[in-house]
C-alpha cells in the first residue's frame, strides 16, 4: 500500500495548447409524438392501481417507486421555490438535496397496459424498452389554463381526471436534468475586491 495515487489517468491529463471549456450536458430535446404512443393507465396512488389490479400489487408498488426515482433523476427541477411554483402552482413544489433545487410533487404515475398480461414486475419490466424507465411520473399543472398532467419532459400527457393516456416512449426516457435559465439584470457583482486593488498591486493568485 503506497501513500500516493494508484490510478492517475495520464491521457486525460494531457492538454491542448488552449484550455478547453467543457460544456454542461445539454438537456435532450424530445418531441412527444402522441399518436404513436402506447396506452397506459394513470394512477394517482398505489392503492388506486391495486384496486384495479388486485393480482398485480407488486407491479403497482414497484412501478410507483420507479416513477419516484425517475422524477428525481430526470424530471423537471428548478433553482428555487418561486421558479417551480410559477410552472406548477403554489404549494405544488418541494425542496430536494437540502434545498439546492426544487421539484414539483409527483401527482401520479403511468403503468403500461401490459400489466393486464404479465404476472410479475420482472416480466413487466422486461417488456418495457431497455434504457427507459418502466414507469413514468406525471405532474399536475394549470399552466395551460386548466389542470392537466405533464410528463418528465414537460410534454402534456392528459387532462386532470383522465384514467388512461397515450404516452410515447420518450415519456419514459432517461434524460439529463434540465438547465434552468433566468434573465440576468446585472453582472460584475462579484470580483470587485480584486478589480479595485489590481491597479496598485498585482497578485499571482487570489488563492493561497
Amino acid at each position: 500500500m503506497t501513500k500516493r495515487s494508484q490510478n492517475v489517468n495520464l491521457a486525460a491529463m494531457r492538454k491542448p495548447v488552449v484550455f478547453p471549456l467543457s460544456a454542461l450536458a445539454a438537456a435532450v430535446a424530445l418531441s412527444g409524438c402522441g399518436s404513436s404512443g402506447e396506452e397506459a393507465y394513470l394512477y394517482n396512488s398505489v392503492s388506486e392501481c391495486v384496486a384495479e389490479h388486485p393480482d398485480s400489487a407488486d407491479i403497482c408498488q414497484q412501478a410507483y417507486e420507479e416513477a419516484q426515482l425517475a422524477a428525481l433523476d430526470s424530471g423537471p427541477r428548478y433553482a428555487n421555490q418561486n421558479l417551480c411554483e410559477t410552472e406548477f402552482g403554489a404549494g405544488q413544489c418541494q425542496p430536494q438535496a437540502g434545498g439546492s433545487f426544487w421539484t414539483p410533487f409527483v401527482a401520479g404515475y403511468l403503468v403500461g397496459e401490459i400489466i393486464d398480461e404479465v404476472g410479475d414486475y420482472a416480466e413487466y419490466k422486461l417488456k418495457k424498452r431497455s434504457g427507459y424507465y418502466s414507469s413514468t411520473p406525471v405532474f399536475l399543472s394549470t399552466k395551460s389554463g386548466r389542470p392537466a398532467y405533464y410528463g418528465m419532459n414537460e410534454q402534456k400527457l392528459g387532462n386532470f381526471g383522465d384514467k388512461t393516456v397515450r404516452a410515447s416512449s420518450s415519456a419514459y426516457q432517461r434524460q439529463a436534468p434540465k438547465v434552468r435559465t433566468a434573465s440576468t439584470v446585472s453582472r460584475g457583482g462579484f470580483g470587485t475586491t480584486v478589480r479595485s486593488s489590481s491597479s496598485s498591486s498585482s497578485s499571482r493568485s487570489w488563492g493561497g
Binding site: S22, A79, F101, T181, S183
Partner: peptide
C-alpha cells in the same frame, strides 16, 4: 461531474435574486 467555467466577475444576478452564467443558465452549484 460535468462542469462549466466562468470568471467570478462574469457571475450575473437575475431579478429573482439568482446567480447566472454567461448563457443565463442558473448557477446551482
Amino acid at each position: 461531474l460535468t462542469n462549466k467555467f466562468l470568471y467570478v466577475d462574469d457571475i450575473g444576478q437575475s431579478k429573482e435574486g439568482l446567480f447566472t452564467d454567461n448563457d443565463d443558465e442558473v448557477i446551482e452549484a
